[in-house]
């Protein structure tokens, strides 16, 4: 039985795409904060400059999967069925943070 911190670390290290994005995460108690440092390859609009909308969506989705790895121990990477993203403003060229809450998870107690 591994700890939530170990499960999170395993998840972050095992997914190549998370390394491609440059995403990390910190766990304080049971609250996880995902961190996406700004990098030139994440830009979608060079004039502003702003993060690519797809990067923001992907980062939030990966944050949800990372939160699941904290809540639920599983050897497999979970699969997304659907995501809905509402964009409020452009993502600026700075470090971006994300948090997720797990409302209901089959096979584990919800957080």
């Amino acid at each position: 039985m591994s700890t939530p911190a170990e499960q999170l670390k395993t998840f972050l290290q095992s997914v190549p795409y998370i390394r491609f994005l440059g995403m990390t995460a910190e766990l304080a108690g049971d609250e996880m904060t995902a961190i996406l440092p700004f990098a030139p390859h994440l830009i979608g609009n060079t004039f502003l400059p702003a993060l690519h909308g797809g990067v923001i969506g992907a980062f939030m989705e990966m944050t949800a999967l990372a939160q699941l790895s904290v809540v639920q121990e599983t050897p497999k990477v979970h699969k997304t069925i659907d995501v809905t993203i509402e964009y409020l403003r452009p993502g600026r060229s700075m470090t971006t943070y994300a948090r997720a809450t797990c409302a209901r998870s089959a096979g584990a107690s919800p957080m």
Partner: peptide
């Protein structure tokens, strides 16, 4: 700029 995006896998 994207306002909203829904994806079904």
């Amino acid at each position: 700029a994207t306002l909203d995006l829904r994806i079904d896998y």
